[in-house]
């Protein structure tokens, strides 16, 4: 029983990471109907930046904040330079561009920072076992921080005029413009925010999975599964989906398929969602534009 509880709690901890990346993906999908396949690699790049800062002597939390801010800039830049020109191009074009970006960032990470697997410090320590030894200090701290980030994002969208304008621009860009909203600026902000959320997730997961250029590829897969499970057009659903995928992954990994096949769990979840409930748990029916 304790074993199961342990799997669930560490599932929630990794679920928090998946939820963040799911949210980043869904935010962009909702606004542009494009999937940013490079979302994971962008987060990995951010994590490398954070590690470089930490090694240069910058205190952990300062490095965290600087990285998140820089990543926001990276997101805005990607939107301006790569996304804007292919906005209305066929799906293939945007997939090609984002796969290209994935390759470039992945290769640059390896080139600049090396392919060796690196340890990443955790800011969370505790002298005593937490919750009766059920969770590690990092798991607890990481989950807490991620949940705070997600709540802040939620509050931003729910309560601020800018958040409202971003939602409006995503749902109905023409009408948003007629309300005086600068839709293209909102898209840039959305990309920046998504990259910033991804960066936070990358820094939080790196102490667990260690840092190398391919750190996020598996996580991106779970995030896809989480987003589909929650509903691709529902940010709230994507977050819940991410947590569910985290727990399922751990339980399946521990008791059913073994840790060797953990990534296959993501594939199975994706196929199962598409078969059983393609709109996801919280999504609306898929709308087709003619």
């Amino acid at each position: 029983m304790n074993g199961l509880l342990h799997q669930i709690s560490s599932g929630i901890a990794s679920g928090a990471i998946y939820a963040s990346v799911s949210l980043a993906l869904v935010m962009i999908y909702q606004a542009t109907h494009h999937v940013n396949f490079a979302q994971g690699e962008m987060a990995t790049l951010s994590t490398f930046v954070a590690l470089t800062l930490i090694h240069a002597g910058v205190p952990f939390w300062a490095a965290f904040v600087i990285t998140v801010v820089l990543s926001f800039g990276l997101g805005v830049a990607v939107e301006r330079v790569l996304m804007r020109p292919v906005m209305n191009a066929p799906v293939l074009t945007s997939v090609g561009v984002f796969i290209g970006l994935l390759l470039v960032i992945n290769a640059l990470d390896g080139w600049i920072f090396g392919f060796t697997i690196k340890a990443f410090p955790s800011p969370f320590h505790s002298a005593h076992p937490l919750l009766g030894g059920l969770v590690s200090p990092h798991e607890l701290g990481e989950t807490g921080l991620t949940v705070v980030v997600l709540l802040l994002v939620w509050a931003f969208f729910r309560f601020t005029p800018l958040g409202l304008a971003m939602r409006a621009a995503a749902h109905n860009p023409v009408s948003a413009r007629l309300c005086g909203v600068n839709v293209s600026r909102m898209l840039g902000l959305g990309w920046g925010l998504a990259a910033a959320i991804g960066a936070a997730a990358g820094i939080m997961v790196a102490p667990v999975v260690f840092l190398d250029p391919n750190m996020m590829s598996g996580i991106l897969l779970y995030a896809f599964a989480g987003a589909l499970l929650g509903g691709v057009d529902n940010p709230f659903g994507a977050v819940i989906g991410g947590f569910i995928v985290g727990v399922l992954e751990n339980i399946f990994g521990a008791y059913i398929v073994g840790t060797e096949l953990k990534l296959t769990v993501a594939l199975i979840i994706i196929v199962a969602v598409l078969l059983v409930k393609p709109t996801g748990l919280f999504g609306r029916a898929v709308q087709v534009r003619v």
Partner: peptide, 8 residues
């Protein structure tokens, strides 16, 4: 078409 933000 009224331009309603249907989801909001």
């Amino acid at each position: 078409g009224r331009g309603t933000f249907l989801e909001l």
